[in-house]
């Protein structure tokens, strides 16, 4: 589904002494089927932006459109259920979306709520829990008797079980162990491609944004600061540092290496292996001299 923000402003607690504008005059477009990463410093408005995608928050000014849905102050759709069956959101803290007695019931909640036939639900639970690496013996447990990373997996499984068309992920790998982080991102990416999903990912990992996203939007203090393809955005060190962000680690290393060795190895999304090879050639070049 296409997503468009048109001059969106969102203010928390308007007309009170605590009034706080978290998004200001934000406009951008996400093409259906693309994988967008949203990046920004603490408090820059990322989670606020995401909560507009399933109508949890409605713009104070401006308009958000998601497929055929229009969300604005004048245009609050009376029924958000259909939108929510199409837009699955994994929240920043998994506990916020767990509430059932058992893990199994928690994963089943979404599909049941959206009218998936009973006969299908069991299959969906199985498939979703396998996708997130949740071992079957945890299904009968209370979701609150789990480790942090296990809770995260349950929360993600609950969203996958609904089979959404738009996947909205707010730091979905926080709390996962390194293997879990990689497997989860690979799984999202595979789903994204196979099912033709539109994916919006909030992440602090420049590496993940570089690896999976085809488009990046950088936020600063509630406003859009930069946007573009990851390899364009992530090589602009100064601009990023101005908003307290850094280039990906491989770019940092490459820049430092080029400076020290007076070389100009370009950044072209190379792997560590490819980088090692370029370095070896620089050192080997030495020997031949």
């Amino acid at each position: 589904m296409d997503i468009t923000f048109k001059n969106v402003t969102y203010t928390y607690q308007p007309n009170t002494p605590f009034e706080h504008t978290a998004l200001e005059n934000m406009s951008f477009h996400v093409k259906s089927g693309s994988f967008v990463a949203i990046i920004g410093h603490t408090g820059s408005g990322k989670s606020t932006l995401l909560s507009h995608l399933n109508g949890l928050q409605v713009p104070t000014e401006g308009e958000v459109t998601i497929g055929d849905y229009r969300l604005s102050r004048e245009h609050k759709p009376s029924d958000l259920k259909e939108l929510r069956s199409k837009v699955g959101v994994v929240f920043q803290y998994p506990e916020h979306q767990l509430f059932e007695e058992t893990v199994e019931k928690d994963i089943a909640f979404g599909p049941e709520n959206f009218g998936v036939p009973e006969s299908d639900i069991k299959k969906r639970i199985e498939k979703a829990s396998r996708a997130v690496g949740l071992s079957p013996e945890l299904l009968k447990r209370s979701p609150f008797e789990l480790s942090g990373g296990q809770m995260r997996r349950v929360a993600i499984a609950g969203v996958l079980a609904v089979s959404p068309e738009v996947l909205v992920l707010d730091e979905p790998t926080a709390g996962l162990d390194p293997r879990g982080q990689k497997e989860m991102m690979d799984m999202f990416y595979q789903l994204h491609r196979e099912e033709g999903l539109t994916t919006v990912l909030v992440t602090h990992s420049m590496e993940d944004a570089l690896k999976y996203a085809d488009y990046v939007i950088i936020l600063n203090k509630g406003a859009k600061y930069m946007e573009g393809r990851p390899e364009e955005v992530f090589t602009q060190k100064e601009a990023l540092q101005k908003v307290q962000l850094d280039v990906p680690e491989i770019v940092q290393f490459l820049t430092a290496f080029n400076q020290k060795f007076h070389t100009s190895i370009p950044f072209q999304k190379q792997s560590e292996k490819e980088l090692a090879r370029s370095i070896q050639q620089v050192l080997k070049g030495d020997e031949e001299k």
Binding site: D177, P178, R179, G180, K182, E249, I250, F253, E272, K273, L275, A276, R277, I279, Q280
Partner: peptide
């Protein structure tokens, strides 16, 4: 289920070369 940081991975690749 764990991993090592970027420098350690790169160092390993360099040793391979």
């Amino acid at each position: 289920g764990l991993d090592v940081p970027f420098v350690a991975i790169l160092a390993d690749e360099l040793k391979q070369y």
